[in-house]
Structures are given as C-alpha cells and as structure tokens.
Design a protein around this nucleic acid. Structure first.
Lengths: 202, 202, 202, 202
DNA sequence: GCGTAACCGAGACGGTACGTCCGGTCTTAGT
DNA sequence: ACTAAGACCGGACGTACCGTCTCGGTTACGC
C-alpha cells in the first residue's frame, strides 16, 4: 500500500516508529495540521529530529503513514462489502459503518487534516488517492458490477459515476463538517441513488 | 456576501486593496497555499506588511477575500439558476458552467487552496460555507422546490439531500483533482440524480 | 541658547508644547532613552505625531529641549558662582549644589539619557556641549581667573585644565552611577584640586 | 575578565563567534551604535540571526564582548602600571598610552558606543564597570598605595578619590570628544594631580 | 465677522528591524 | 552503526516604530 515510502524497515527501531506515529496523531488532533511541526513530533516522541527526517520526506508523509497506521489498527475504514444479494441493505450497512468511523474524533481529525493536505498538494493528493482511497472505492465498483449482473442496476451506466453518486455526497458532507453523518442520512442516500441506478421499470 | 468580514473600509486605499487581492491570487497559483507567505503578498503588492495585517487576521482570510473578489469580477460562480420548466436542462446548463469555472486554473488553484484551508480549520470552514457556498446552494434548493411544485420531484424528499446528490459528486471529483469535469460527466450526473428524485411512476 | 532650533514659536500651541516636554521627561524616566519612542511621546501628550515631527527633527532634539525646559523651570543647573574671596568655600558651595541636582532623579534620568545620546552621536554631543555645558563651564573659568588675579592660583596653569581637575571627576562619578555624589566627596575634590593649583609655597 | 558572560562555549563554532565579533566592530564603526542592528551583524558575519540570539541577549552585550575581544587582541587597554619609583613618570607613561589607545578610531568608536549604552542602561553600566573598568582602575589604586608607602603621597587621602583626580578629567575629555587627548594634556594632568596629592611640605 | 489658510488630532501608509519559531542540514556524544 | 540532542543557516512570522502622507475639524489672522 505504501511500502515504497513508509519506513517499516528493519533499521528504524520499532519503538521509535510507533512513538512517532502516536505523537503525530496526538498532535494533529491537538493543534491541527497547519500548526503541526516536525520539531514537536520529535520532541513528543522522545526522538531526535534527524530520526524523523531520515525516514520521512515531509510532514504530510508522516501524517499519511500515521493514518495508515491508525487504519491498520482499527480496521475501521478498509472493509469488505458484503454481498447478501440485497444491494440496498449491503450498501446501507457499509455506509453506516463508514459514516460512524468518519465521525469518530480519533479518525476524523487526522484524516481531515490529511485530506486537506492532499487537496492543496496535487502530488500528495494523487498518492493518497492511490494508496488509501482507490482500493476501497474499487470494492464498491465490484459490488455494483455484481449487482448489475444480477439485474439490479441498469445496463449502460458508468459504474464509476454510479459509485460517486453514493460516496460523493457522503464525502462532501464529511469535508464540510457541518451536518452530522447520521444513519438516516446514509440510508436516504442509498435509497435515492439506487432509484437512479435501477433499471427502467419498463 | 462577506460584507461583515472584508475590509471594504473607507480608509484602506482602493489601490492597495486591489493590489493585495491580485498579488494573493497570483502567488497562490504560482507557489501553492502552503508556500504562500504574507511577506511575499505584501512585497508583490508593493505594500507594507502592516497594511496587510491591519486588515486581515490571517493568510486564509486574505485568500478568502481574494476569491470573493475574483468571483465578483468574473460572476463565474454565483449565478442564478434558470427555470425554463425543464429541470434536467436547467441543471445541466448550470452544472456545465460550474464545472467549466472550477476547471479554469484562474479559479481552480485559489479555490482549491481555500477549500483545503477550510477543511483543516473548522472555523474558517464554517465561514466559507456561510459566505460563499451556502448562498449558491440555496439557489439549487429553490429551483428543486419549484420543480417539486411542478410535480417533477417526488414529495417527501429532503431537498437538501437531493441537492447533495447533484453537487456532492461534482465537488468530490473536483477536490480529488484526478478526473476531468467534463460536460458528459455533469450531464450523466443530472440524469442519474433526477431519476432518483423523480416521482414513482405510479 | 537653543533659539535656533527650539519651537518656541507663536504657532505651536503653548499647551501642546508643554505637554510634549512633560511627556518626554516622564517617558524617558520610565523606560529609558533607547525605548523612548516618538509615538509614545505623541500619545502621552495627546498630540498627533505630525505635531511632533513638525517641530523637532529627532528624538534627541526633543529630549534636549525637554531638559533645557526642565533646567529653566528649576534653575538648578546653570547658576552663578559666588565670589566671596574664599575660592575653596565658593567652589565647595557650588559643587555641592551641582552634585545635589545631578543626584535628583527628576534631573538625573533625563540628563543621563541625553548625555549618553550625546556621547554616541558626535553632532548632538557638540550641540549639547555648546548649548548646555560650555556656558556653565565658562563661569568656572572666570571664577578661577579671578582667583589667579588674587594670587590664589599659580601662574602658568591652563585654567581649562584646572577646571577639568574639578569637574572631570565629578562628571565621571555621575556617569558611572555607582558611587554617591556626597558633599564630603565634592569637598575633598575641591581640597585636593586646589592644593594642586595653589602657588608654590616658596 | 568576562568569562562569566561571554559565550566562550564549546558549542558555538569558533569561526562564527569570531565572525560575529568582527562584524560587530566593523559595523559599529561604520554606522554607529544606534544604527547597529542585529540583522546586519548576522548578515555580515554570514550567520543566522538565531545564532546571535542564542548566545547574546542584546545588542549591547554583543558589543561588550566585541570590545573585550578587541582588547584581548590588542592588549591596548588593560596594562600593568610600572613602578620605577618615580610616580610621576610612571603615571605619565601609562596615561599617555591610555590616551593614545582611546584616540585610535579602532578602539574609540566601539568603546564610545559601548560607554554611551552603559550610561543609558544602569544594568549594563554596572556590568561594564565591573568587567572592564574596575580591574584597570584597581591597578592605579595599587600603584598609588605603593607611592604612599614610599612617602610620595600624603597620608589620609582616599586613594579612590586620588585616582579619580587623574582618570576623571581624562575620561571626561574623551567622552566629550572635543579636545584632543595629547601627551601634553596627560602630563599636565599628572603634574597638577600629584601636586594635590603630595605630602605637606612640613 | 468672515473667509481662508495654517495647524491640529488621528491614524493609514510603505518600510525596517525586532525577537521568535521552525525547516531542513550537520556535528557531537553516547550507547 | 545508529541514536538523542541540539547548534547551524535561512527565512517567515506577527509586532513596534519609523518618518510621510492624507483626512476632517478647529483656530485665528487678514481682509
């Protein structure tokens, strides 16, 4: 996933690595991404600055790995999408779970900061999309493809667009940070979107 | 729109104000938001640093006003939504225009930087939403309400959610910055969303 | 004395002038010369900055006039030297008075600041010497000349050097600001110096 | 001499330290103390501002160390006072040397600036006196004490006052900066002062 | 006694330097 | 060999004043 850049190496002491990830997540929650400094991360982790610079090229990269680290711990984001045959129920279940995860401060603050950094910096953004976002979205596409084979989705619909009909509004609400990501909201979203995707009632 | 926060004062020289807005837009396009510095803005605008600090509390606030300034010049973002009776056509027209504006570098780079700042900083985010985003979104809600009265949208649908079904995916694609915002895409979006919103073929 | 540079004009409101002088003396006593700012003087005096800049070219010039202003009020510095025929007694009296004046905070702080400015800036220093110091020193030279005519001082002595034998040590002690300027000290100074100046007991 | 306050640390690079001292002396001679800025010192020395601020608390402290640095190089100020038995000759020799040093621009400009700063700021003044001035003056007191034991100076004279009779006028002339510090002047000073100090021709 | 011109307070302006903070590199000691 | 510690150069931060420049408003002088 990020094997090309993450330390994960034999040489970086496991303890230091863990401390840096933890300190980064703590600090970004406390002071926000713009005021997050590498000096503070090193100090909080009880580590020399050079130890940080040796393994990560930038503040954003540290946070990226820290969020990946967090996800691997919690397995709260990347999850398989069930296929019970009932597309609506399956999507509602997985979107409810996603909304809950994104609402939890432990995940919300760092991920939001990381998303902001990715939006501002195209390079980082592409990296985040390919490392974190795309694998997850691909699972949705696959589930929708299965549904189409089952006749639950109209032919001729670009599944990528269909996917965005579901995830776009949720992501948008999350980034806006104004309205809550309630289960009622995600359920409504699934209902409306699936109605749009359904084959003509011909 | 943002009369409560912009300087707009009698005392700030019109020339300086304009120069600061212009320099900000130029610089954010050239070096990006994180490397945008107030010193550089002041220098590029041929203005003392204090003149910037006197009127704006932060880099983000300058950029916010600069973007508002840009919008007022171009009238490219806040635009009325026509009501020809054909909801799909009306929405396609306005979404095409919005996509074009958001694709143009002159608007894209500053707005993306501003959006990123707003996502990272909740206070600024709320301000941006209420100053820039909300007024525009409200126009969509009104157009959808008119359509519902005309029987083109099912009763019992939360128009706010309906709105997000249209704008969420577009905003998401824009923020991801990967796929192009083509007219074909926005048209498809309108078609799928409206199918979801349409009254049951009772 | 400083008629060439002081405002003293008909146009500068008497009240503003007085307020500026007072504010300057207050502030220099409170924060010291280096931290004395023209903005603070204007603010304390309830006067626009331009009113200060209109009449004085520099911080030093304001302080110079303020000290002159202070001296004219107190007549504590420029004073005639009595001639009772007893040179030692006359000098002791006048040196005691000078020491007392220089010890008084009201005079000490501004004058010390002004002296420091004069030492650092040769131009100001020459001005201070010719405007303030020289007239006073000249009185000593005249008294010493009278004493020489009376046979109390040896012929062939440069009266200027003789004068410095008296005033130099006192000024030095004052500038050092360590030892107190006691009457015992000034008396001793007069005794030792006059012994050096006395005609040979041949 | 000032080992308690100078950086002298192991960590401050020798090269940077030397460059800062040199740049300070150059700049204070070029533009004077009031226009001496820490930014300019750092720039001239090819050093980051923080490296200056890390080791010195103020402009005055830098200059103080620079002057001490200068003195140690030149050994032009702190010098022993010879004791040939001829008090007058010894004092004349040492005062001539002191006058020459104080007249030399390389020493005069920085030292004058430092003296001015010390006069304006009591804390710095006390520091300068105890670090630089007092050790030198003490040598004079010791020489005078030896002379008194040899019967060349009257009993009952406060040697501290006697010392000031010599150095006070010289320092005063130097600070006034008007009259030159000629050898004739210092010789006359010694003659007059010693006449005042001599034992009564009983 | 009435215009008008200088002076007033206030404070914004383009600047310079302040002293602090942090970025990213390099050096030093100590495991 | 790799670490924690931290000094190094550079450069932006936000603040304080500099000396200049408009602003209206108020004297007070000359007609």
């Amino acid at each position: 996933m990020s094997s090309n850049c993450a330390p994960s190496a034999t040489r970086l002491r496991r303890r230091s690595h863990h401390a840096i990830m933890g300190a980064t997540l703590e600090l970004v929650s406390e002071v926000g991404y713009p005021k997050l400094t590498i000096e503070a991360i090193a100090a909080r982790a009880g580590v020399g600055k050079q130890t940080v610079y040796r393994w990560w090229p930038s503040k954003a990269a540290i946070l990226r790995d820290a969020v990946v680290h967090l996800c691997q711990d919690a397995t709260g984001v990347t999850r398989d999408i069930p296929d019970t045959g009932d597309l609506a129920a399956d999507l509602k279940a997985v979107l409810r779970a996603a909304a809950d995860t994104m609402s939890h401060p432990r995940y919300d603050l760092p991920a939001r900061a990381l998303a902001a950094a990715g939006i501002a910096d195209a390079t980082l953004g592409a990296e985040l999309v390919s490392c974190i976002l795309e694998p997850q979205l691909q699972l949705y596409v696959e589930r929708l493809a299965a549904a189409r084979r089952a006749g639950q989705v109209a032919e001729g619909i670009d599944l990528r667009v269909a996917l965005e009909l579901l995830t776009g509004p949720l992501a948008f609400r999350w980034l806006m940070g104004e309205a809550p990501l309630s289960h009622a909201y995600t359920d409504t979203l699934v209902d409306l979107a699936l109605r749009g995707l359904a084959p003509r009632a011909a």
